[in-house]
Design a binder for these strands. Structure first.
Lengths: 196, 196, 196, 196
DNA sequence: CATGAATGAGGATTCATTCAT
DNA sequence: GATGAATGAATCCTCATTCAT
């Protein structure tokens, strides 16, 4: 009934191992394309039984959510870094490409981005908010510097990116994704130029 | 096994009424957010029994497909019209806005666009192809006129639009959708200016 | 609710035609191997609608029963004829072979014989009784003439024949069926010789 | 999807109990005459939920097949034994009677034999092949010893036996079945005498 | 009389979740 | 803590039969 309280006390070594194995297996399962992988399948891949999933995660959805949250955590470290090293518009450009490249490398990431960005599922609320805030930071910095058109929210941009990053199935995907991302970026600069 | 031969002879009045009611109910069901509405539920909404669904549509998926096909048919009449009345780039701009406005008015259309554009589900293959071709026509005309950047396929643009049009849940959606669509359009023109 | 009272008054010409067409279609459907052909399918083959089936036959089973009864009627004319022309044992031998040959020629007949003989389904009660009586007549005549072992009922022999005649699917069926029928017949004579 | 790996490790005690209960319930269900007993019904009889059937058996048909396979396994141990103790023709005679007696004792066995022998259903392919081979062994041994007429396949004989063993519904079944089995056997010997 | 659209009670199967071992 | 067997609601689809047109 009550799933493991992660904060209360540190997990025993084997329990932690199981938790990690489950997350890895779930990531793997989604990466293989089965965003609707069954719990039995995920448990099997992790080398545990289904019961163990329910010891670590409230429900199947909670497991999925955690997988996606971790992916997003990794990505959302980037903007701060990029803003330290580059001009705001360049930082934005690089972040957009980063998302595309990650999607190109990892189908799991692509599915994650699509799910997070292009849906309203409450399962991904946290991840979505985090991503939107990361983009907001970049957009606002760019707008403040007069390099990027203002008036576009991270959430909105996210939508478009979700559509783009979800494309991975089609032939020649990567190039097209890079191209349309560049178009979006040009559009964002174009507006600023007009305004300025 | 083989459902209703639509071509053989016109449906009886009551049969047509039921068919329309089913399509309306299905549209309604998807509109209410249940893209995975159950056949029983759709039948109930249409005021018929499940068997009637299967008299009119091969499978549940065939019904869904038909709903989406109708929405798309309506939209895809537009490009030809627009190209007759406007310069290619203006026709493209108007078509992009048309998609957004339709999504603003009809949640069903928004869901349809998202499903058609942002997935690879074979269920929507026909609808997707039709939409991609509509955009291709506009993009090619624009590129031929030197007003639009070349090298972007309708399919790719569709992806981004799918993400955008699916946004309807959030507050202030319409304005943001119009804005980012404008950004995309600007990006497409921007490239052409560069090239030219 | 009440199906056509066949005796009350003669059918209109077109009604009779429909009834015949339905029986022919049903025979054809079973002959094609689908002993479980659906009513829609049978109606389609007969060039009528399902409603017409229910005007002529109480239920689907009643239609099947009638088909089988007709097949059996044809066969059961034979014993009388054979007993007029041949010695009782020869008449029996010929009748057994007649069943096999009919099954070889008509898959419908084979299915009919199997259904009638090798099951206890009340649907075929009448047909079964008729066949059993036909065999009884031959067996009794043979036993009375001292040429055939007594103590075997037509119903029992029918069972074995049903199994044999149902074999038509396998390769080289006809020869094996003829052979084992001959064995059965030899067994019936063999017993008589022993007894005599 | 893949049911229970029987080989991997022995079932837990309760699981084995359920598996046995399911097989017993299925046997019972068929015995009651419902060869088409529903999964819900079988589950109910076994005191489990439907899901448990699908944990143990791939499909409904797989369960049926297993029931029949077990019956056949029991029977097919006999021929080897009989050939060790008796002359080939006597072994054959006893095996034929064994089938009849088993059918007399167990309606389940009778139905099993009828299903296996008198149909071509792929569900019973394995069982049928096994039975046919058992008979082939006896027939060939008998033919080699000059005691039994050659040229009859086990498969063919099986058909006739299926018809006979399926008869259990009628009054005085057992005696008639024994008698006609004897006739078949006499026929098989009769041929050999002729040939020799 | 004929049509064929509609009915709706099944029936097989799936899978997230629970809980006895 | 872990196991994995059991649960059972949910879901799609079939098809004999009825009845409005």
């Amino acid at each position: 009934m009550e799933a493991l309280l992660q904060s209360s006390r540190p997990l025993r070594a084997d329990a932690r191992r199981n938790r990690e194995a489950l997350l890895a297996a779930a990531r793997e399962a989604f990466l293989t394309g089965e965003a609707d992988a069954h719990v039995e399948e995920i448990a099997r891949r992790a080398g545990v039984a289904v019961g163990t999933i329910y010891r670590h995660f409230e429900t199947r959805e909670a497991l999925i959510e955690e997988v996606y949250r971790q992916e997003v955590d990794d990505l959302c470290a980037a903007p701060t870094e990029l803003l330290n090293r580059h001009a705001p518009d360049e930082a934005l450009r690089r972040f957009l490409l980063l998302l595309v490249e990650h999607s190109a490398v990892s189908k799991g990431m692509a599915v994650a981005l699509e799910s997070i960005m292009a849906t309203d599922s409450p399962v991904f609320d946290d991840a979505r908010t985090q991503m939107a805030q990361a983009l907001d930071r970049l957009l606002e910095a760019g707008a403040a510097a007069g390099a990027i058109r203002g008036g576009v929210s991270g959430r909105t941009l996210l939508r478009a990116l979700g559509g783009i990053c979800g494309m991975r199935a089609t032939e020649g995907w990567r190039d097209e994704a890079v191209r349309i991302t560049a178009i979006l970026f040009d559009g964002l600069r174009f507006g600023a130029q007009k305004a300025g």
